[in-house]
Amino acid sequence: MSGALGGPPAGPVRWVPATVTAAWMETPGSRSLLLDAPELAPALAGQHVDIRLTAPDGYTAQRSYSLASPAGAEQLQVTVDRMPDGEVSPYLVDGLEVGDSIEVRGPIGGWFVWRPEQTEPVQLLAGGSGVVPMMSMIRTHAASGSTAPLRLLYSVRTPAGRFYTEELDRLAADGVVDLQYVFTRETPPEWPRQAGRLTPALVMEFGIVAADAPSVYVCGPTPFVESVADALVRLGHDPSRVRTERFGASG
């Protein structure tokens, strides 16, 4: 891995206010929030923000959330999974209301990003809510009119657990992204494959081949990322072209 990019931003990365302008349940266990944070610098596709909550007695807790909104969007979108024993995520999913303010900091991260100037093929591999930063990349790709081949392999437990289903299907129909689902627990009716994990064989079957030298982005829970990244390296992908981001079970 090499690579680095740009100089430091003009000012420190500091906490700024954000107002919730819209919120909806993405699935039964997860919620998308649109945030208006005018003091935040424009984000790149794939970056994340920190969100901080402050209790009435001054206690604070912060967590990192990837952005689903496209690069440079004025309204930032995050999609939050409700973690059963989580501290922050239950409030973001069930407590926060439109019009409420929270604090955000960012955007952060210069590695797990896709820029419209990139012309090489792009292979995205998402496990569960790991699709969030991929959505930012796909939306950015669509908005920029990029002609770089773009493929998403999206591993998800059930059809009802998918994020951004209608939009992804539309973008796939429009030819922006080549979309392939892998259902690990339950498939739609008459699905051509049984439910099961994203195996190295499926990565080989549906992924862009190493010979095409794609940039590869893998995001999801640690076991997903470990097994998929290992498979990619065994399939001949240059490790320095495989960018990973892992979602721990924190919340």
Partner: peptide, 26 residues
């Protein structure tokens, strides 16, 4: 947690697992 744990630096929370963060393949 209602009580601030003095062993935790500012902005940190207590984790009992061992999350993995890496920029690329292992």
């Amino acid at each position: 947690s209602r009580e601030r744990n003095p062993e935790l630096p500012p902005g940190q929370y207590l984790e009992t697992g061992f999350p993995v963060l890496t920029a690329g393949p292992t």
